Amino acid sequence: MSKQAAVRLPDDTYDRLHALAARTGRTATFYIRQAIEEHLEDLEDLYLAEKSLTSHRASGVKPLSLGDLDRELGLDN
């Protein structure tokens, strides 16, 4: 099953999308769906990373430098 969503696009983006669809014989919907599916995971990762960073900063725990981490893990050969 699929759901429908309405999206407002700037005129130039809309025109580019429909020109691409016309040139390739695909629908604009195909390209919208493809763009969302390809970038959704990146957006999810970005927001999770930002949330984790904010939480870490609020914790007051001092971050380790890469050199300190290497020494702590015994990788400073």
Rank of each mutant, 00 (worst) to 15 (best):
M1S: 10
M1H: 12
M1Q: 11
Q4Y: 12
A5G: 08
A5Q: 14
A6L: 15
A6V: 15
A6Q: 15
R8C: 05
R8I: 10
L9D: 09
L9I: 07
L9W: 07
P10A: 12
P10M: 11
P10D: 14
D11K: 09
D12G: 02
D12P: 03
D12L: 08
T13E: 12
Y14Q: 09
R16P: 07
L17I: 00
L17H: 00
A19P: 00
A19W: 01
A21C: 05
A22P: 03
A22H: 05
R23Y: 03
R23H: 10
R23A: 15
R23L: 09
G25M: 05
R26V: 09
F30K: 08
I32T: 13
I32N: 04
Q34T: 10
Q34E: 15
E38H: 05
H39C: 07
H39F: 09
E41I: 08
E41F: 01
E41V: 05
L43V: 08
L43Q: 07
E44A: 13
D45I: 11
L46H: 13
L46I: 12
L46S: 13
Y47W: 14
Y47N: 10
E50F: 04
E50T: 03
K51D: 14
K51A: 15
K51R: 14
T54A: 15
S55R: 08
S55P: 00
H56K: 03
A58R: 08
A58Y: 00
S59G: 02
S59T: 00
S59E: 00
G60F: 02
V61S: 06
V61W: 02
P63S: 03
P63A: 04
P63E: 01
L64W: 09
L64N: 05
S65E: 00
L66H: 08
D70Q: 10
D70A: 15
E72Q: 11
E72L: 12
L73E: 11
G74D: 03
D76T: 02
N77M: 04
N77I: 01
N77V: 02
